[in-house]
Design a protein around this nucleic acid. Structure first.
Lengths: 113, 113
DNA sequence: ATCATGCTTAGCCATGTTGCTAACTATACA
DNA sequence: TGTATAGTTAGCAACATGGCTAAGCATGAT
């Protein structure tokens, strides 16, 4: 378990904004140029570009310029460190439940004596 | 799919900080008082209390005062909206892969003619 | 060559976040 | 009663975030 993983910070932070989640959701349906990402949000292009760069820094989106159009592509692999953390966290929690279980079982055995 | 769920913002934001993740990790092992949460982080109590309130507002931790000690408890259920969103996102992505598959299959059939 | 399109950059503003210290309250213990 | 313990609150400083406008640049169409 990493003590503090800066990449995780970037990932969770990137997803903490509804506009960025909306953009990601669009991109999950397939690549799109910046303007198309901006459309449904109602925000201006510079704002969207900033959100996009946050997504890129988190590794969630990669972009490539083709002529004057920048095409944005969702990178699902980037999610993994996050789901890994969530799984690890759940494991710790479940181990705790198991220990609680043992504890309760022992209590009951004691009672039976 | 909710247009913009403020709760998701709070959840992802709460997890975007390494100190808060460390605190949660400790709490997954079982309840703890504030001072014990602060210990390994090296931060002062007021700082930890602010982090704690972020976790509480996200619903990830509930606290209760017993005498002069505040006991903090991890609330795993609070994670659900987040994992639900991740699952939904993955579903969209996989549906896209399926469509791509169909597309490639059609291309190959065309070629055979 | 000119114009429209699609970004891109610079820079401003308001607000939010994260750390701190200092001072306070409330409970337990002697 | 007095003292140590465990939080708590107020408020400050530095920096990050999220929106904008205005101006610029590169490419495609005419």
């Amino acid at each position: 378990m990493a003590k503090h993983d800066p990449h995780l910070d970037l990932l969770f932070h990137a997803l903490s904004d509804p506009t960025r989640r909306m953009m990601l959701n669009r991109l999950a349906r397939g690549p799109a140029p910046v303007t198309e990402l901006a459309g449904p949000t109602g925000f201006k292009l510079p704002t969207i570009l900033r959100h996009l760069s946050v997504l890129e820094e988190a590794g969630l989106v990669s972009t490539q310029k083709d002529g004057r159009v920048r095409s944005c592509v969702f990178q699902p692999k980037a999610m993994e460190p996050m789901t890994d953390w969530l799984d690890a966290q759940r494991k710790v929690w479940e181990a705790r439940l198991d220990r609680l279980d043992d504890y309760v079982m022992n209590l009951m055995k004691e009672r039976e004596k």
